[in-house]
Design a binder for these strands. Structure first.
Lengths: 240, 240
DNA sequence: GTCTATATCTGGATAGAC
DNA sequence: GTCTATCCAGATATAGAC
């Protein structure tokens, strides 16, 4: 799948994400008109992500946020009850989006090699679309509340588990070689994370998300596929 | 080389690091007795790393630092002139150590494959010995002063350059296959970073630094070595 | 629903005794 | 060289007008 096709398919606009959020949290948000609320939640979150990803969440003052979002200090507190609450809100939304997109794209695929490729691609594409969220989420994880920290770890384990399962299925089917599945999954995650943690680096070198996806898949396959299979795969074109 | 052997060789104690630092910065530090100064610099830095790696440098108050280091607020300011100054001090020390150790261990090696293995190992071992430094340095990079930020990027490029050069030498010698050297180096760095960024994960799974080193080397070699070479290498035992 | 103005608190930094 | 006490800037959060 191309990145453009993916974008068309998931179409994760901030609007959608925050509309969902608003509906699930009507009670906590003082503003009662949905359209007004969603519009401002988008402004607030994108301002918060932009400032935080520049200087870190703890150093972002609410005056900064007020200025960049265009809302007054007082108005901000109609949308969250404390600065920490805002942090947790943003975190929550990201995790919901990941689980949703992953399930949607992987559930139909049975064949391990195709599933592995798709999982790598989907993760990279998703982190590309939601780069500020992913980066924020990684860098600010230690500041979360206890409860949200627990959720964050759960989400981390969830995605790693997906890769472990795919690898083990492939080993059972005798498609992949017999390497340690847990460690291999950890390595894959490290490579996926590098994309959103060092986006500036890849951008400055002109590497697109599709190229990076290609690279990671090749890299992983050279490790997981037996030597002779690999040669044959390459003849067939390894990307479906 | 085993991890123990490495430790014996470099023997990077906090003492040594801060004694070096003290001698290079006598003018900036108000305390004039070397032994007193070094002893307290060690206390301050290890307290600062411990607190920061728990909750982040911006959220560490000087009262926290005072409590954990056992020095009073006033005394702390005999060792640095501002909180930012402390940040830059710690950063500086880490980079000096890296350059020193890398040069010492790699300069003698000409053969690309051995050099690649050694570079991976040394980086992992070093980040293991200085884990709090490495983690801190990565997570707090955005808070550095302009000048120290520039230095940090330089250091980043320095280590990546080492890997690029090794790969290109190996390609010239027809030992490695013809993949993109820059991207491959980026991938290697991502895997090396995962070790100190997610140490808790590997620890909880009982993966030692030697095992991880073995895994990364295998992974990279399966990508860089031609198929037939690989088979032969494995027979010889790929770790020297 | 949003704004301005302000109460309250926290944390970096310093002065001066010991 | 180190400590205690204190200053003061700047931050969160809220009250009340519009």
């Amino acid at each position: 799948m191309t990145f453009d096709a993916f974008q068309g398919l998931v179409n994760i606009s901030s609007e959608d994400i925050w509309r969902d959020f608003y509906r699930n949290n009507r009670d906590k948000i003082k503003v009662k008109k949905e359209d007004v609320a969603v519009k401002n939640l988008v402004k607030i979150s994108s301002a918060a992500l932009s400032i935080s990803n520049r200087k870190g969440f703890p150093l972002m003052t609410l005056r900064d946020l007020s200025e960049e979002s265009g809302l007054s200090m007082g108005a901000l507190y109609s949308y969250f009850s404390s600065k920490d609450d805002l942090l947790n809100m943003i975190q929550q939304q990201r995790m919901a989006a990941i689980v949703k997109v992953f399930s949607a794209h992987l559930s139909g695929i049975g064949e391990p090699l195709e599933k592995l490729r798709t999982a790598i691609q989907i993760h990279l594409y998703l982190s590309e679309v939601m780069q500020p969220w992913f980066y924020f989420s990684y860098m600010e994880a230690k500041n979360l509340s206890k409860e949200d920290r627990r959720k964050a770890i759960e989400a981390e384990v969830f995605t790693e588990r997906i890769f472990i399962d795919i690898i083990e299925q492939g080993q059972k089917d005798r498609i992949f070689v017999d390497v340690d599945s847990m460690t291999t999954a950890a390595i894959i995650k490290a490579l996926l994370q590098d994309w959103y943690l060092k986006r500036w680096k890849y951008e400055s070198r002109g590497v697109s998300v599709e190229e990076y996806s290609r690279i990671v898949i090749d890299f992983v396959e050279s490790y997981l596929l037996p030597q002779d299979n690999l040669k044959q795969e390459e003849k067939n074109g390894s990307n479906g």
